[in-house]
Design a protein around this nucleic acid. Structure first.
Length: 806
RNA sequence: GCCCGGGUGGUGAAACUGGUAAACACGUUUGACUUAAAAUCAAAUGCCGAAAGGCUUGAGAGUUCGAGUCUCUCCCCGGGCACCA
């Protein structure tokens, strides 16, 4: 009998599988395609992170399970190698991202090969290779043609750390998601993708797709749909109008002032137009300047007291009651949302209430909870609840919900839906990304690079460091910038910004099956066969980034007639976070687990299984250093079980039942990504088997088949070498169970008195309820407890419990 | 503030439609084997108690013969959104 040497057998099978290309499937001819996708990593210099291994193992088990269920599983892997993260790392190391990336990709690939996953390396993708980013640029051009890519001057978020502008989604609480710097606001001309066009579809489709609920809610929150009305206020003695967005038109009679954001266009025109006769111009200019100096973080700090300035001399007219009201500017009103102006109803909005208190503005209650009792409560905070209208002209007495529509109509308001979602800013003033394929010509304006001229190659630039200006380092490369206009042939300049990394990853799943095609991004027939993706597994940190962008791009490509589906991922599951002994793993804590250490000591099978055993996959796991010995012991037991070929004994009913039960349990658990309990069931099964001196070989075969997706190497070795099968276990069909054979003959029942367990009885499973009752009452312990008292009531749950109530 | 998760032994965690809480593992203790250690095997292990028994799923209330599971109120941890009008 040979000892279990995981390192040796894993190396052996790794080689064999690679030689045979065991997992590669015929993309073109496949009859039962199953696209099993996981989020490709960015190849950092530190190498494969244990969190990657955790994520990929769970996804690979799913793929292997589907494979044994007869599907042609396509499980590609690639590298998100372009982008700020790779570039920042190169800067830190004093290397060049291009040299760095090649090295890291090779390192990652080698590490990934140790996992024993189904990865198909013939379909690898690297977003930084010209063969890939050529099509990222092509994608941009398609969006441009559709009118979904546009250039606009807008207030944008600038990260002083990364020295580039960022998309909205990449600013978390006023800070850069990459480097944590507080972002600043700049007015710059940038390229945007019109994701807002799809806001409604992105939101509505969420109800239909089979995705983890966490991610769906995150996206719903982010899209942030709110319905209301736009109302118009006249300015007294002037032709100007102010439009406001409100979700509470029912409170219009209580609007006692207007607030404009300091950036509101009307504000600057008022300053420059003497007709307005503003009395405190200097004060207003100062306030606007102060606002400009603030970062978004300071401006939106909830803790800070609200500030504002009245536009003295300007009055607006409340359209509901024609009362004159004052007009203010305040930085708590954001220019980017709604119309950049609000009607303030201090009685029914907490923010307005605070502002009104501070500046002593009138607070008029128009919604009252205790109508028709005319006494309204005295407010020490805004009343935001339901009620009936008071002091609201003809609407007085109406329930406020009903009044929303009616008052909006009464003042000719317009129904309006607003979204929190903003267009996707994709320009980056950085080097390591695909140059945006646009040429500027003095005569023709912005001209897209003709598709035949793609890729616009990223030149190898010695000094690729971000400049810190609003220009990318490419702007200093004369040979790159200077070009001819594709339209008129005249002198022209190239766009020098590159696009956001998330554009690279927004379509990579379309590329994988078509990597062999070099003249198109994805082949039509193959795409029809393989997409949308059947299962996508990844982290929830990309809920409103990658996962939303990918959906948007898919919708846009569909509308362009390039694909025929609008949701890229039929099923998405978010895995949990892997932590270590209760704490997050991070470089700064120095508590990051190295997968290589475990590949080389316990082996990949033990590592895979331990990671999955830690807890429910979708919930995350807490790595305990001492824990891996448990699965290592288990694998050793499995090994030994297969070495001693015990005698053939058929029809041990208890063992047969357990075998079928285990098949059922493991099948259901794997299907639902509950790998931890699947492993527990296998452990129980093995513990039982080791107690037997003889059993049918079928038991061991079934065990290995159930274990194969979790521990691919050891099961292959035992299947072929110990049990003598010629073909791979991974080509075996997934075991089935017979529901008839799971049924027990006898059952243990609890006997309770007033709900407390006092004894146990054993019964035939198909016994009559009365027999169970009788057996319970006859039990010695129960008799003692009853002491001759007559039960008031006896409840029998067959094969479970008898509860005697006295 | 709003929206998702979650709170169960010393630890990671199980528990089907409400029906014997703590499966599976780690750790610990004891014993066997060994000169010894490791490995392995066997036994014990929720808490209190010598035992009988009592108590126990974040807290409190409720529904029920019976609640970790359902309802309500509240507390704590993780995450998302947020002066969004």
């Amino acid at each position: 009998m040979t000892d279990y040497n995981p390192i040796k057998i894993e190396e052996k099978w790794r080689k064999k599988w690679e030689e045979k290309k065991a997992w590669n499937i015929d993309i073109k001819k496949s009859k039962k395609p199953y696209y099993n996708l996981m989020m490709f990593p960015y190849p950092s210099a530190e190498g494969l992170h244990i969190g990657n291994v955790y994520a990929f193992t769970g996804a690979d088990i799913h793929g292997r399970y589907m494979r044994m269920n007869g599907h042609d599983v396509f499980e590609p892997m690639g590298f998100d190698a372009f982008g700020i993260h790779s570039e920042n790392f190169a800067i830190k190391q004093g290397t060049h991202p291009k040299d760095e990336t090649g090295k890291n990709v090779n390192n990652f690939r080698e590490q990934l090969k140790h996992m024993g996953a189904l990865f198909d390396w013939e379909h690898e993708v690297d977003t930084s290779s010209p063969d890939y980013y050529k099509w990222t640029q092509w994608l941009f051009l398609q969006l441009y043609k559709q009118g979904l890519a546009y250039r606009a001057k807008a207030p944008v978020d600038w990260c002083p750390g990364c020295k580039t502008v960022l998309a909205n989604e990449q600013v978390i609480g006023g800070k850069c998601e990459r480097c944590d710097s507080v972002v600043e606001q700049k007015d710059l001309e940038q390229w945007f993708l019109k994701i807002t066009k799809y806001a409604e579809k992105l939101l509505n489709n969420l109800d239909e797709i089979d995705w983890s609920e966490v991610v769906k809610t995150a996206q719903r929150n982010w899209i942030g749909r709110s319905t209301g009305a736009e109302l118009e206020f006249r300015i007294k003695n002037h032709e100007s109008r102010v439009r406001v967005f409100t979700t509470r038109p029912d409170t219009l009679f209580g609007a006692t002032y207007l607030v404009l954001s300091p950036e509101h266009p009307l504000v600057s025109s008022m300053i420059h137009d003497s007709k307005f006769m503003i009395q405190n111009l200097d004060e207003i200019k100062d306030y606007i300047n102060d606002t400009k100096k603030k970062t978004e973080l300071e401006r939106t700090d909830l803790a800070k007291e609200k500030t504002g300035v009245e536009l003295k001399g300007v009055k607006a007219i409340n359209p509901a009651n024609n009362k004159e009201i004052t007009v203010w500017i305040a930085d708590y009103v954001l220019s980017g949302y709604g119309t950049g102006a609000i009607m303030a109803v201090p009685a029914h909005d907490q923010r307005d209430f605070e502002f009104a208190k501070k500046y002593d503005l009138s607070i008029e209650m128009v919604i009252c909870p205790n109508y028709p009792d005319p006494t309204c409560p005295v407010l020490d905070e805004a009343y935001e609840g339901e009620g009936y209208l008071v002091a609201s002209g003809d609407f007085t007495g109406m329930p406020n919900e009903e009044a929303k529509d009616k008052i909006a109509k009464f003042v000719n308001g317009e129904e309006k839906i607003n979204y929190h979602l903003r267009d996707w800013l994709i320009s980056r003033q950085r080097y390591w990304g695909p140059p945006i394929p646009i040429i500027y010509c003095d005569k023709c304006g912005a001209v897209p690079v003709p598709e035949k001229d793609l890729p616009v190659e990223l030149p190898y630039v010695e000094d690729f460091h971000p400049t810190g200006t609003d220009k990318s380092p490419l702007a200093t490369i004369e040979e790159f910038v200077k070009t001819k206009c594709p339209q008129c042939g005249g002198e022209a300049r190239r766009e020098t910004d590159v696009s956001d990394t998330f554009l690279d990853s927004s379509w990579y799943f379309l590329r994988y099956p078509s990597t062999e095609f070099h003249k198109k991004p994805f082949d039509e027939t193959i795409t029809k066969k393989w997409l949308p993706v059947d299962m996508y597994i990844g982290g929830k940190e990309h809920s409103v980034l990658h996962l939303m962008y990918a959906r948007f791009i898919t919708m846009a490509l569909r509308d362009a007639g390039l694909i025929d589906f609008e949701e890229p991922f039929v099923k998405f599951r978010a895995h949990g976070l892997l932590i270590r002994e209760g704490a997050k793993m991070s470089k700064s804590r120095g508590n990051v687990i190295s997968p290589d250490d475990y590949f080389e000591s316990y082996g990949a099978d033990a590592l895979r299984m331990y990671l999955m055993f830690l807890g429910p996959y979708e919930q995350g796991g807490d790595w305990q250093d001492s824990g891996i010995t448990g699965v290592a012991r288990f694998l050793k037991k499995v090994w030994e079980l297969c070495q001693n070929k015990k005698g053939k004994v058929k029809n041990d009913p208890e063992l047969e039942r357990l075998t079928h039960k285990t098949v059922k349990k493991v099948t259901e658990d794997i299907e639902n990504l509950r790998y931890n309990t699947a492993i527990a069931a296998l452990m129980e099964y093995v513990n039982k088997l080791t107690q037997y001196t003889a059993y049918d070989i079928y038991c061991v075969e079934t065990l290995l088949q159930l274990l194969a997706p979790l521990a691919p190497h050891i099961t292959e070795e035992l299947w072929q070498e110990a049990l003598g099968h010629e073909a791979s276990i991974h080509n075996e069909k997934w075991p089935e169970y017979d529901p008839e054979k799971i049924k027990e003959e006898r059952a243990r029942m609890a006997v309770q008195i007033n709900g407390k367990v006092r004894s146990q009885i054993e019964v035939d499973v198909d016994a009559q309820e009365d027999d169970m009752k009788e057996l319970a009452l006859g039990d010695e312990k129960i008799k003692k407890w009853l002491e001759g008292k007559t039960p008031k009531k006896i409840i029998v749950v067959p094969n479970r419990v008898v509860n005697i109530v006295i």
